[in-house]
Design a protein around this nucleic acid. Structure first.
Length: 585
RNA sequence: GCCCCCGUAGCUCAGUUGGAUAGAGCGGCGGUUUCCUAAACCGUAGGCCACACGUUCAAGUCGUGUCGGGGGCACCA
């Protein structure tokens, strides 16, 4: 980017200085602690220890930019009316708070604060120059978190349901990363047991049929047509002489390898990578046996947690742990049921000393997941588990095509794959974004007809368009020889005192706080809300305010800085979602 | 039978430890372009927040119950 004489003139006439960055989170924290100490200094020990003067955003411009409702809370405690309380609190703090230009008491007793123009401009500037992450609180502070997601067994391609989980998991991971966590993404899969045998046998059946032999896919086996292709590959590689009886392992391992490749390629469509693929076979038999041993040493009310039934099965007494049913953990044929290796897996995860362990599961795992958590709490102590384990359960997806819902069943081979979905929707960006427009715990109808529309009806394009528009402005500005300052000066705020500028700055200021909240709650759908707000805010600003104006270069430069802040904010957020931020559309 | 989720504008959905006049997109109606991307903007209509009771100074938000819808619950994973 080149800078003209006008620019250097501005640089000369303004006093640029470095300063300590004041983030929106710091401002709110400071505000809260000032309010709190004011309250405590007035009423002393009448205030409960857990009292907090919480500050939140105002939804109405007339009521300032941030507000505090402490006075209403205190009414019952100090026996006075809220407006009088608010008055006493504010008396003690006039002129003491950085970043605040005025304070008022409104309504039943809200204390409303107006952010100073200087502060607003400075946060916009910080966004423009250093990006969103520089304003986010460092919640993770380098602590380590393990996020497990997808964890689909290698039996076929990923489906629409896995797609939602993949998008959720990778976005939550990125969000945590942006908040200062060191994130490991892990994929757990079952490479042993009945399902793999069925898969291998299904492959063997397809393999035999291809050679004209009569062969039937086993009861409960896999009917997907992709296995026909694997069978062809298998005979091309190893010839036609294999039989299920003699070469079980060859069939199973070949199928597993093919399935895993399929899954990896599906994931790459979404741009998702894992740090580790953890196979169940790594736990068998030592880790699982060890876990059973630990559990069997525990007795609750005189009864052993692990017991054997007449038929030779081994049970875990979940009812003693507050769960509704006891469950079989070892079948009479000596194999483990799903829960047992999963408990061992979680013990393994906990033994690796992560500060936080996040599980992302579909609604079908709810019951098991609670059993696993109960077993963990029993072995490791309730406190250490509840403090570290975070389970996010998401509801299922229904596809809507041509206005009608598509029914899916998994094993039968009648399902829509992730790959088909992305092809049908036209791009992975659209798919990813739309999956994040709903809360994880809400059922979701994925509307393919909407996904295919390349118009403002489609929320992705609305946001991307805002980004492309800003990029266009920056190009125009560059050609006109205008660029925004590289250092911040407080003086710049007087150039941005218009209604639309302030509205945009106010919005930009709130973004990092909202993103931090989304990270704390692990609710990535809030990011699409924020993005939509940013796009709307920018479009509105653009419609009313001329940015590139060579006759008014100082104002133009200041406005350009807002544009850059907005663009950076949008692209950083889209980056967390893994969605492209195009410069042209 | 047990468990989970949902019920907010015509449709799809947001709604920040409970707070001020309940919001957005799409759809409807009416406008805006000699000007940096009209994939945009502005205005307008449209709501007993399923229902009842309770807690509270204050409930879309919390509790109990009722009704309605979706989903899950294996010795599959």
């Amino acid at each position: 980017m080149k800078c003209s004489g006008a620019m250097s003139q501005v640089l000369n006439t303004m006093v640029w200085r470095t300063r300590r960055m004041m983030t929106p989170a710091m401002l709110r924290n400071e505000l809260e602690s000032v309010l709190e100490s004011s309250v405590r200094s007035i009423w002393g020990d009448r205030i409960p220890d857990d009292f907090r003067a919480v500050v939140s955003g105002s939804n109405n411009l007339e009521y300032g930019d941030v507000s505090c409702q402490a006075a209403m809370r205190l009414a019952g405690i100090v026996k006075d009316n809220p407006r009088a309380i608010a008055g006493r609190i504010t008396e003690t703090l006039t002129g003491r708070i950085k970043g605040i230009s005025s304070i008022s008491i409104d309504g039943p007793g809200f204390i409303n604060f107006r952010l100073s123009d200087n502060y607003l401009a400075s946060t916009a500037f910080d966004l423009a120059s250093s990006g969103l992450q520089s304003l986010l609180p460092d919640t993770g502070a380098g602590r380590e978190v393990l996020v497990e997601f997808v964890s689909s067994n290698p039996t076929g391609p990923l489906t629409v349901g896995h797609c939602r989980q993949a998008v959720l998991g990778s976005t939550i991971s990125s969000l945590l990363e942006a908040s200062g966590w060191k994130v490991s993404r892990e994929y757990y899969f079952n490479d042993t047991g009945r399902q793999m045998t069925l898969l291998g046998e299904s492959l063997a059946a397809r393999y035999s049929s291809a050679q004209g032999d009569e062969a039937v896919i086993p009861e409960g086996g896999y009917h997907g047509s992709y296995i026909i292709e694997w069978a062809a590959d298998l005979s091309a590689e190893l010839g036609t002489g294999l039989t299920w009886k003699r070469d079980r392992d060859t069939f199973i391992r070949f199928a597993e390898e093919k399935a895993m490749k399929m899954i990896l390629s599906d994931l790459s469509l979404l741009g998702i990578e894992f740090d580790r693929f953890f196979a169940e076979s790594e736990l068998i038999p030592e880790a699982v046996t060890d876990a059973i041993e630990k559990l069997s040493r525990i007795t609750i009310e005189g009864k052993s947690l692990v017991y054997e039934s007449d038929s030779g099965k081994l049970w875990l007494r979940f009812t003693a742990l507050g769960r509704p049913k006891d469950r079989v953990i070892i079948r009479d044929n000596g194999t483990y049921t799903y829960r047992m290796p999963d408990i061992a897996y979680h013990l393994d995860k906990f033994s690796r000393n992560y500060d936080l362990v996040v599980d992302i599961f579909g609604a079908d795992h709810l019951d098991t997941s609670r059993d696993v958590a109960a077993a963990l709490e029993c072995l490791l102590g309730e406190k250490s588990v509840s403090a570290k384990l975070r389970v996010i359960i998401h509801q299922f997806v229904t596809l809507v095509k041509d206005g009608r819902k598509i029914k899916m069943s998994t094993r039968s081979g009648e399902f829509v794959t992730l790959r088909e979905l992305i092809n049908d929707a036209g791009s992975s960006d659209v798919t990813k974004y739309l999956f994040l427009t709903r809360r994880a715990d809400a059922h979701m109808d994925f509307d393919l007809d909407l996904a295919r529309k390349q118009s403002s009806e489609n929320p992705v394009y609305y946001v991307q368009y805002a980004h492309a528009r800003i990029a266009g402005i920056l190009r125009t500005a560059d050609e006109a020889g205008i660029c925004s300052p590289v250092e911040f000066s407080g003086d710049v705020s007087c150039l941005l005192d218009g209604e639309y500028e302030r509205e945009l700055m106010r919005l930009l200021e709130s973004v990092s706080v909202r993103v931090a909240a989304a990270a704390d709650e692990m609710e990535p759908h809030r990011l699409t809300e924020i993005l939509a707000d940013l796009a709307t805010g920018f479009h509105r600003f653009y419609q009313h305010v001329r940015v590139v104006d060579t006759d008014n270069s100082d104002v133009s430069e200041a406005r350009l800085m807002l544009c850059r802040a907005c663009r950076r904010c949008i692209s950083d957020l889209l980056g967390i979602l893994g969605v492209d931020a195009p410069d042209r559309m």
